[in-house]
Amino acid sequence: MFSIIKQSLNNGHRGGIAFVLGVSFSDILLVLVSNVFTELFSSISSHRVPIGISGSIFLIGLGVYFVFFKKVKVNEQGQQATISFRKSDYAKIFLSGFFMNLLNPGIFLFWITASSTMLSHTVEQRIIIYATCLLMVLASDIAKVMLAGKIRNRLTPHNIHIINRINGIILIGFGIALIWGLLVYLKRM
Results as ranks from 00 to 15, higher is better:
T38V: 13
T38I: 13
E39A: 04
F41W: 06
S42Q: 12
S45M: 15
S46D: 12
S46M: 09
H47I: 03
P50K: 03
S54K: 04
G55C: 06
G55A: 08
S56Q: 02
F58L: 15
L59S: 03
L62T: 03
Y65W: 04
Y65G: 00
F66L: 12
V67Y: 02
K70L: 11
K70W: 02
K71V: 09
N75M: 05
E76S: 01
Q77H: 14
Q79R: 13
Q79Y: 10
Q79F: 12
A81S: 12
A81H: 05
I83K: 12
F85Y: 15
R86E: 13
S88M: 08
D89L: 06
A91D: 01
A91S: 09
K92S: 11
K92A: 12
I93A: 09
I93G: 06
L95E: 04
L95G: 03
L95T: 07
S96Y: 03
S96T: 08
G97Q: 07
G97P: 06
F98D: 02
F99W: 11
M100L: 15
L102R: 12
N104V: 07
N104C: 11
F108M: 14
F108V: 05
F108D: 04
I112N: 07
I112F: 13
A114G: 08
A114L: 15
S115K: 08
S116N: 10
M118V: 03
M118F: 09
L119T: 13
L119D: 08
S120K: 12
H121V: 00
E124P: 00
E124F: 10
R126S: 07
Y130F: 15
Y130D: 15
L134N: 10
L135G: 14
L138H: 08
A139T: 03
D141R: 11
D141L: 09
I142F: 05
I142L: 08
A143N: 10
K144L: 15
K144S: 15
M146A: 14
L147G: 07
L147C: 06
